[in-house]
Design a protein around this nucleic acid. Structure first.
Length: 491
RNA sequence: GCCGAUGUAGCUCAGGGGUAGAGCGUUUCCUUGGUAAGGAAGAGGUCAUGGGUUCAAUUCCCAUCAUUGGCUCCA
């Protein structure tokens, strides 16, 4: 017998080799119907995994994050299987669960599906699901796995397997489908009752622009038809809150293709709204000891070359602006930083003058990739509420915390409740792409971490997201459709 | 920039090889003690732009531009 401890602390005895499903049955048949996956001693297990030793067991249903993940990951297997029925030559790559649903990246070669093919794939998925096929895990040696995928001429899977550690490779089978997989599946396909393919997109293999582009099929599935209907209604409801729709209806802003892509035109009502917002922000800044400055919309190319921005972002700038004089080159200002530094350089300061805080509503222009433009959230001309602080290393912590305070005050005043702070640090595996000494980086990184901690921020650390010249603290908010946007940055 | 979708009246959208439709809005008039009300008449579109195929294109094909879902990028 083995002793199984449940999350409520109760301990039950089971025969050795009992499965999480057996445990679920011992609690109630309702739970047994609903249980999707489980965690045993901090490892994800299938509901059919035999338990051989004493331990802690948590059962997950669709209501749990872990349950959804297993459900959607399993649905991705199902989708891949359905896709292969129509596109037998398609090469599968990876198919994970995501926040809302799942996707599978597939190399279709010449004949990729379009959204007109969604229906038949969905229908096939439901047909397969109704077969109530069990998900079964099995192991294969690395060599055999490599041979398998080489014989199938699937370079993507070969690459994946080559990067795995030596030893047994796990596969997951259901019906006539098998896929390389770590595990974490639902008991059988039958509990997938509703399926919808939501979109189709190109996605680079391993997220790398220089690698082949695959076709990514997005989908979502539920254990009840009603849940799918509700989800789709929720999406419709969220679309009503889209700022682009509101901007049009409320006559706040517009775009004109005669002016140019990503260059918003503020209508009278929008300009009034913006003025109110700017006044509110300026008041907060002045109260916090900032001095307002104003810098021009253009600057000599050399200014940005010196700052290092040109090398990194020159190609993404509007440049150069030619003048009647031969050899002169100007850029439309892509960032305010070098301008504020020149303002600081206007005269020598004593350390007793520090900190000096400059703030500006600085309008900048960036040649963003056309596919990246999005309403007012990603544009080619926009105004930054931008500030730069010149201080001594000893003042850094206090200054940093004071900036966090302003951000929190503004967010609170504007009603942003659901946000988190992302600490963006260097990519530890690729330190060459950053400027400055290791020592200064470490100082700056620990200063951000320290200040965020002291302010009690809800943070997560992301490596590789730092700017080339320093780490950042990014405030991320979600839009009505759950997409994350960077709304404020301290660096 | 890449993959996909879309571009028809002010707005939301239907249609489809033979010179355009609906609802809402709008204009004028009528009705109505109550106003996101009813009725009548009307205005408004070279069906994104430029090529091509065709006797004929808004409808098919190609390109461009813009919008949009993702990917990549995001100072």
């Amino acid at each position: 017998m083995i002793k199984i401890t449940l999350p409520d602390g109760s301990v039950k005895e089971f025969a050795k080799g009992s499965t999480p499903m057996d445990v679920a049955y011992s609690i109630s048949s309702g739970l047994a119907r609903a249980v999707i996956s489980a965690k045993f001693n901090d490892t994800t297990v299938e509901t059919s995994t035999p338990l051989e030793i004493d331990g802690n067991l948590t059962l997950f249903t669709f209501n749990d994050k872990e349950g959804k993940e297993a459900f959607w990951h399993s649905s991705a297997h199902l989708m891949a299987q359905a896709v292969l029925k129509f596109y037998p030559d398609a090469k599968l790559t990876i198919g994970p669960a995501i926040e809302n649903g799942f996707y599978y990246d597939v190399d279709f070669g010449e004949n990729a599906p379009t959204d007109k093919d969604f229906k038949k794939i969905e229908d096939k998925m439901i047909e397969i699901a109704r077969g109530k096929h069990e998900f079964k895990k099995r192991a294969l040696s690395k060599a055999d796995t490599l041979n398998l995928y080489k014989s199938e001429k699937n370079p993507f899977k070969v690459e994946l397997v080559e990067n795995l550690e030596d030893g047994d490779i796990t596969f997951c089978d259901h019906d006539d489908f098998t896929d390389l997989c770590r595990g974490g599946h639902i008991p059988n396909t039958g509990i997938i009752k509703a399926v919808k393919l939501t979109s189709l997109a190109g996605a680079y293999w391993r997220g790398d622009e220089t690698k082949p582009q695959l076709t990514r099929l997005y989908g979502i599935s539920f254990p009840k038809q009603k849940m799918l209907t509700e989800y789709l209604q929720m999406i419709e409801e969220a679309k009503k809150r889209d700022h682009r729709k509101l901007g049009k209806e409320l006559e706040l802003f517009t775009f004109s293709n005669k002016v140019g892509q990503g260059l918003p035109l503020w209508l009278p009502k929008g300009a009034a709204l913006r003025e109110t917002l700017e006044n509110f922000l300026k008041k907060a800044q002045k109260k916090a000891g900032y001095q307002m400055v104003i810098s021009p919309h253009i600057g000599q190319k050399e200014l940005y070359v010196t700052s290092g921005h040109y090398e990194k972002y020159g190609e993404d700038s509007f440049q150069p602006i030619n003048t009647p004089k031969e050899g002169e080159e100007f850029l439309l200002k892509p960032m305010n930083c070098p301008h504020h530094c020149e303002i600081y350089n206007n005269k020598p300061f004593s350390y007793k003058d520090l900190p000096i805080r400059y703030a500006e509503f600085g309008t900048v222009y960036r040649y963003e990739q056309s596919g990246e433009l999005h309403g007012l959230t990603r544009v080619r001309g926009f105004t930054q509420d931008d500030a730069h602080i010149f201080c001594t290393p000893e003042q850094l912590n206090e200054e940093f915390k004071a900036v966090i305070d302003i951000v929190l005050y503004v967010f609170k005043s504007l009603g942003f409740k659901d946000f988190n702070a992302q600490i963006s640090l260097r990519d530890p595996n690729n330190k060459e792409k950053y400027i400055g000494s290791d020592e200064n980086w470490e100082k700056a990184e620990s200063a951000i971490i320290e200040a965020s901690k002291e302010k009690g921020l809800d943070t997560n650390i992301v490596y590789g997201e730092a700017a080339f010249y320093g780490p950042k603290l990014d405030f991320m908010v979600k839009d009505a459709l759950g997409r994350t946007w960077q709304l404020g940055t301290i660096q």
